[in-house]
């Protein structure tokens, strides 16, 4: 009897703990990505170039993750990350270009 039960339970526990590990790493993956995107946002802010919606998007990403919608959460994090990357490129571009517009 014990043998039969263990034949079911041990694999079941294994599957459960494996899937438990899988969801843990998905949220770990999200947290890592979110933290990186927020750091990028702060970098843009440090040079005065943070865009208006980046923080909001990160907030929405957290909310999506809290609801378990990891796919959307990761999409939003990627969107926020891209905004900060574009802002940094913009800052570099403008640091040279602005002088060319000053009326002489």
């Amino acid at each position: 009897m014990l043998k039969k039960i263990s034949k079911i339970f041990i694999p079941a526990i294994a599957v459960l703990s494996l899937s438990g590990c899988a969801s843990l790493s998905a949220s770990e993956e999200f947290t890592a990505a979110w933290d990186a995107a927020d750091a990028a946002r702060k970098d843009a802010a440090a040079v005065g170039y943070e865009w208006r919606d980046t923080g909001k998007i990160l907030g929405k990403a957290k909310a999506a993750a809290d609801e378990g919608d990891m796919e959307n959460a990761m999409k939003l994090v990627a969107k926020a990350q891209e905004q900060s990357a574009d802002a940094m490129v913009q800052q570099k571009r403008e640091s040279e270009l602005w002088k060319t517009r000053v009326p002489q």
Binding site: K79, E82, Q83, D86, Q90, R93, L97, T100, R101
Partner: peptide, 17 residues
């Protein structure tokens, strides 16, 4: 639009998503 004119008034609709 910045490719043709880096001082263009037009927002970069694709580049800036």
């Amino acid at each position: 639009p910045l490719e043709r004119n880096p001082n263009s008034f037009m927002p970069p609709f694709g580049l800036h998503n």
